[in-house]
Design a protein around this nucleic acid. Structure first.
Lengths: 210, 210
DNA sequence: GTCTATATAAGGATAGAC
DNA sequence: GTCTATCCTTATATAGAC
């Protein structure tokens, strides 16, 4: 989605967000200059400060735009799974994994965003971590509770580790996934579903390990 | 290990490497300036270019210093496991996981390096990726073959995904691990062993999933 | 090998015209 | 809301004295 022409009919603000997402994914937050962003978005350099105030705010907005939707989708699916298929682990994992991997199929830069997410994890930037924790921490906590309910024999510490492993496997899978260019949208969709299914099998077995 | 005093008896070159490792872990490669590095190392700004030629070479040296040792340890342990305990999955995973997690116990900045590794993964920098692939790609290939030997029924594509999940879980675990400050060296060592054991259980079960 | 000083470029942010 | 022009800071890298 480095092809800016594909974003030509969006507003200046949206064009900046799209370009920033692409570039942050490729070069990181510190490694991307606002000049690069505005150049790729084909807007004026001053537009960033007019619309976002600062680079830091722009970074936060890049996250908010995708994470609000992702979190909603995850929680809605989770709650449906808990009422319709109570006590089952796989539907919970599917609610966590599938909406995330589906982002890689998004035609408007979602595939870049999964790499941005992977970067955010490595980032030790306090402000960014606090922003993510404050705004989206409740999602992980709700999933954590749901999974714990399926695995009553697991110790609290062991559960915490294993959830970390699940998140790591997903992040890695998503970021790697975003690198591969597949021939058609159809092949891409099938590949994504296969990856999600494989990850659910893997993590379900791992979580159930004695 | 941001306490530079602890590195006072090292050479200028080693002090620079140590400071760079700490700062790269915390702020990323692009987010760390050579001025910060030389300031923390308590050496002159010109020393970086004298000893390393450029920032890019410094980054590569930071990796080489740790990865040469890590790769040796991993491969030695792997080969021993293959002859002494043939056909068993857990010893192979232990050879992959334990030397990496042991780095977090290193008194001389190894704990920072695991975060640097996590960052490198998110990095799309072509030069860095090529450097890592050229110099350390053979390690992953050897492990891949060993694990495939234990799981003859697994399809090639499925195996490839699952290895990605293992690497992701390990990277995540290591990076998270480096954040936690534990009271004593003894507690830290026990905690590290527990984490390694948990990760081996998790990934072994995941790899064996039907 | 280590310093000071500096060349040269790029960064974020803003002021003020339109 | 969007532009040009510019301020000010910081960056990498190097030249040349010691």
């Amino acid at each position: 989605m480095l092809d800016v022409a594909a974003e030509g009919h969006f507003s200046t603000k949206e064009r900046i967000l799209g370009a920033a997402e692409d570039l942050f994914a490729q070069y990181g937050f510190a490694g991307t200059s606002l000049r690069q962003v505005t150049q790729h978005a084909e807007v004026n350099i001053a537009a960033v400060n007019y619309h976002f105030g600062s680079k830091e705010n722009l970074v936060a907005e890049v996250f908010r735009r995708r994470l609000d939707e992702l979190s909603d989708k995850r929680l809605t699916t989770l709650r449906a799974a808990l009422t319709e298929q109570p006590g089952q682990l796989e539907p919970i994992l599917a609610a966590f994994i599938e909406p995330a991997l589906a982002l890689t199929l998004d035609r408007h830069g979602g595939s870049a965003f999964v790499r941005v997410l992977a970067r955010a994890y490595a980032e030790k930037n306090e402000r960014l971590r606090k922003f993510l924790s404050d705004n989206y921490g409740h999602v992980m906590r709700e999933f954590s509770k749901a999974i714990a309910g399926c695995l009553p024999d697991l110790g609290k510490e062991e559960l915490h580790w294993r959830l970390d492993f699940v998140a790591g496997a997903l992040t890695y899978a998503m970021a790697d996934f975003g690198l591969i260019r597949r021939p058609s949208a159809r092949a891409e969709k099938i590949h994504c579903q296969n990856a999600a299914a494989a990850l659910i099998r893997f993590t379900a077995a791992g979580l159930r390990a004695p």
